[in-house]
Nucleic acid binder design. Structure first.
Lengths: 323, 323
DNA sequence: CTGAAAGCGCTTACAG
DNA sequence: CTGAAAGCGCTTACAG
């Protein structure tokens, strides 16, 4: 390659990377030779030399869960433009596999690591931090030195949902939550409570029920709420699948949605637009989270960005027929 | 590292890779040193030396389209076990970006390439083939020397769908197809026709309508069919989103599904289970396609697998309420 | 059973 | 404006 152009490898390198000036006609000869031979610089060799792989790792539970493709795409939106490739690892939320994924990514010399995680214990991320790799956690709270967090504003989103319901005249708003008393679901409950309090509605603990995070759970939760002596005229469900379950209950009881009962979910899954009536929901800003995550990583890689921080992405209200 | 264990790099390498015997207590010392230092072999250096990156490239239009995450996961099911990592590139079906993705992946020394493609012209894959990289195309027909194809059995799936309808007593079956007269949609029409012919039903061209590949298109297509002088009692739609549109039409006209009108789709998207009635559909075997694709690539990498071939993955009937 | 040396394909001081 | 040489961290003949 260098021989065909009659120059040294040094000059080829500089012609390609522009790190030092190259005489115009030398550059032309180099480019011609490259064209002619179909030469492509070996990224492995470059990475070995520069100790930059131009690769970012993303560890997630399962790419098949629709939240994660949107996240990955958002990262790629910004990473691609910066010349980075992404390698994705599915861990199924299994801690052993999460640790193994981190090890493999370090061995592959990823320049940065994004981690959407179930069990993340601080220690599991330590190897990456010790290796000097910037890491951002997706979701959860800022808890660890040297790890940025990017997450959606679950509390604010729930508040906005509750306010939307209030604006439209619903007065008694129930919340169908998951089994957990912590994590995003808890933040949503908190946001809902805060919004009601701000509107002057006294808190009523009987209006928050805990059930499973699936369709049947949503159906059961809504039924429990409707069986209350003073039943709600609107229910907020911790996710869209549960809200679809609440719609099932409404249908089974002959309740019109949204006239007799308003229903809202969180996430804006594909099915939210397909059910009848369409589900009004707070869209999970997965793609924006991905973009913010990538930006953060890139900032770290260029040495900027100061101490660990938390970036919070607002959710967006998507109005359809159910509320 | 080698120094701490008191051995050469050669021996460390062999202790780790097992390519030649290492005395038991030497191995132990090496392993201890590794443990103590948290040593992790540099995958870039290894790749450079062996010219194997242990990486597979996957170029797709958009990971956000639910077919592709399932595909990617299927590949990872088998690739992960074999020690490969996957790098995914979104091209949005743009030919320029498709070509760029291939170039980048070759530069990264991927060991194999999977390509799910819109515009694939044979020439676009040529660089990979010249570089000696096994490539498999996802979808389409076997057309190119040196490129395997893995695809779903669209024709067979449509036949199975039609037979299912026939078995359940539906006699007049319409087909709502997309605008295209080629590709998977055309195969599905062909399979449908063949199944009817095999059952002794004379072909009726008026029962096949062409419309857009979306919900409104499906609604329109179903309406057109129902407006026929001799309307169908069942409609097959080229995908689930269109079938959900057909459900809209049935609802609008007060038709009971499946008693007055049976509706079936293709793909088994998430929403198929969420609408009411649940959509009976032919599941797109995306994950199996991914697995088969990865297996094929691995076979090629170990030198096996003979001449280019087409592997066809059957679809699966998913019975729900609509047919 | 083990090691010294070469070399994979780049980039980057260093030198001119 | 350009090149020779070293070196990134591995693996693999070759040798003993």
């Amino acid at each position: 390659m260098a021989r065909l152009a009659g120059v040294s490898a040094t000059t080829v390198s500089h012609a390609l990377n522009g790190r030092r000036p190259v005489a115009e006609d030398t550059r032309r000869r180099v480019l011609e030779a490259i064209e002619q031979l179909g030469y492509r610089p070996n990224a492995l060799a470059r990475g070995l030399r520069t100790s930059r792989s131009q690769t970012i790792g993303l560890a997630i539970p399962d790419i098949t869960n629709p939240f994660y493709p949107a996240l990955a795409r958002g990262m790629q939106d910004v990473l691609g433009a910066a010349g980075y490739e992404q390698i994705i690892s599915n861990t199924d939320g299994d801690r052993r596999r999460e640790r193994a994924a981190i090890e493999r990514m370090i061995a592959r010399q990823v320049d940065g690591l994004a981690f959407a995680v179930f069990h993340t214990h601080a220690e599991d991320l330590a190897p990456a931090i010790e290796a000097g790799i910037p890491v951002v956690r997706l979701g959860g709270r800022l808890a660890q030195h040297g790890v940025d967090v990017v997450r959606s504003d679950d509390e604010g989103a729930a508040g906005e949902a509750a306010r939307h319901l209030l604006e439209w005249g619903y007065r008694r708003i129930g919340f169908v939550s998951g089994p957990a008393a912590e994590g995003p679901a808890a933040e949503r409950v908190a946001g809902y409570r805060a919004a009601l309090a701000a509107a002057g509605t006294p808190p009523d603990p009987s209006l928050v029920v805990h059930t499973d995070f699936d369709r049947a759970g949503g159906a059961r939760g809504a039924a429990a709420l409707l069986d209350l002596p003073d039943p709600p005229d609107a229910v907020l469900c911790a996710n869209d699948v549960m809200a679809i379950g609440a719609l099932d209950t409404a249908r089974a009881r002959g309740l019109r949605v949204p006239q007799d009962l308003a229903v809202m979910g969180f996430d804006d899954i594909e099915a939210a637009a397909m059910v009848v009536p369409g589900l009004t929901t707070m869209a999970n800003p997965a793609r924006e989270i991905g973009r913010a995550c990538a930006r953060r990583l890139l900032d770290r890689l260029s040495g900027g960005a100061g101490p660990s921080a938390e970036v919070v992405i607002p959710a967006r209200l998507v109005r359809r027929g159910s509320a």
